[in-house]
C-alpha cells in the first residue's frame, strides 16, 4: 500500500485513541474533584492532567487558574491546543478523509458521523456541566470506531497500520496516566484503606476500564502495588502495557519491521519477564519514564521505516 495511506491510517487511529484517553483522564479527574478532600486543593487535582497531556506554559498563559472549567476547556475544547479532544478528533477525521478509499465506507461514514456530531455539539455549546456526558460520548465513539474497524476491515496491511497506531498510542497513554496518578494518590503516611482511598483508586481503575477486572482478578481491597501490577504486567488486561506490546509484536512481524521489531521486542521482554518487586525496587516512576521514552522511540522508528515518504 502507499506509504502516505499507511501514514494517514496510523495517525487516524492514534488520534482517536488519544481523544479517548483524554476523555478518560478528564473524567477520572473530574470524579476525584467531586468528593470533599482535605488533602488536595482544586489546583493540585487539576494540574496533573495538564502536565500529562498538555503544555503547562501555554495553559498558564491562556487560562492561569487550574479549575474544572479551565482545564476542561483547555483539554477538551480548545483548538489552539493540538492535543485537545476537539483537535485530535478533527485530525483523526482529516486523516481519514485523506484516505477514505483505503477503508470500508462504513468505517469512513462512522468517523465522519462522529465528526459531524462533534461539531453539532460544539454549535449547541458544551459547558462544564456536560463534562461527564461529553467524555462518555467520546469514549463510546472510540468503542464504535474500534468495532467498525474489527467488523468491516479486510485483514491486510491497512488494518495492521490502524491497529499499530492504536496500540502505540494506548501504551503511551496508560503509562502516563499511571505515572502521574500513582504518585498523586500514594498516601504520605500509612493511613491507607479509608473511604477516600477506595474512591480514588477505584476512579483510577475505572479511568482505564479496569475496575471490574481488578476485582475479578484479586478479589481483595484495592492495593496501590496491585493496581500498578495490573496496568503494567498483566497481559490479560487490554489496556495494560504488556497487552499493548503483545498486540504490537505480531503486527510488526507481519509488516516486516526490522529495527522497529527489535525495539518492540526489547520493550516486550521487559514486560513479559519483568517482576513487580524488581520494578518497585528500581522505582515505578523511573520504570514508567523509561518506558514512555522507549515507546516514543519505537513510534519514531515506525514512522521512519514505513510511513515517511523519502524522496
Amino acid at each position: 500500500m502507499l506509504s502516505r495511506t499507511a501514514d494517514h491510517l496510523y495517525w487516524m487511529a492514534r488520534y482517536i485513541e488519544r481523544a479517548e484517553n483524554m476523555a478518560r483522564l478528564l473524567d477520572i479527574t473530574h470524579k476525584m474533584s467531586l468528593v470533599p478532600n482535605a488533602r488536595r486543593s482544586e489546583e493540585t487535582i487539576w494540574q496533573p492532567p495538564v502536565s500529562i497531556a498538555g503544555n503547562i506554559a501555554a495553559f498558564a498563559q491562556d487560562y492561569g487558574v487550574y479549575s474544572t472549567h479551565n482545564v476542561f476547556r483547555y483539554l477538551a475544547l480548545d483548538i489552539r491546543n493540538s492535543s485537545s479532544i476537539v483537535s485530535t478528533l478533527n485530525s483523526a477525521r482529516e486523516n481519514a478523509r485523506a484516505v477514505r478509499v483505503a477503508m470500508p465506507s462504513e468505517m469512513w461514514e462512522n468517523i465522519n458521523a462522529l465528526w459531524l456530531e462533534l461539531h453539532a455539539r460544539l454549535r449547541n455549546g458544551i459547558g462544564e456541566g456536560d463534562l461527564g456526558e461529553f467524555c462518555d460520548w467520546v469514549k463510546s465513539s472510540s468503542h464504535l470506531f474500534r468495532g467498525v474497524t474489527f467488523g468491516t476491515m479486510l485483514r491486510d496491511d491497512a488494518f495492521h497500520f490502524v491497529q499499530l497506531g492504536g496500540a502505540v498510542e494506548r501504551a503511551d497513554n496508560t503509562a502516563r496516566l499511571l505515572d502521574v496518578k500513582y504518585h498523586l494518590l500514594l498516601p504520605a503516611s500509612e493511613e491507607v484503606g479509608g473511604a477516600l482511598d477506595y474512591y480514588e483508586w477505584s476512579a483510577l481503575l475505572r479511568a482505564v476500564s479496569s475496575f471490574q477486572a481488578y476485582q475479578k482478578i484479586y478479589r481483595d481491597r484495592i492495593e496501590p502495588w496491585r493496581v500498578a501490577e495490573l496496568l503494567v504486567l498483566r497481559a490479560d488486561l487490554p489496556r495494560s502495557l504488556h497487552a499493548c506490546l503483545d498486540q504490537l509484536m505480531p503486527l510488526l512481524e507481519k509488516l516486516g519491521g526490522n529495527e522497529s521489531l527489535r525495539l518492540a521486542g526489547e520493550l516486550h521482554a521487559r514486560l513479559h519477564y519483568g517482576r513487580m518487586e524488581d520494578i518497585f525496587q528500581e522505582g515505578l516512576h523511573e520504570f514508567l519514564s523509561e518506558f514512555i521514552l522507549d515507546n516514543s522511540q519505537l513510534g519514531a522508528e515506525i514512522q521512519r521505516s514505513f510511513l515517511s515518504t523519502p524522496v
Binding site: 500500500m1 502507499l2 506509504s3 502516505r4
Partner: peptide, 8 residues
C-alpha cells in the same frame, strides 16, 4: 517509468 511509493 513511473512508480508509486508503498510500504513494501
Amino acid at each position: 517509468a513511473v512508480f508509486m511509493r508503498t510500504t513494501g
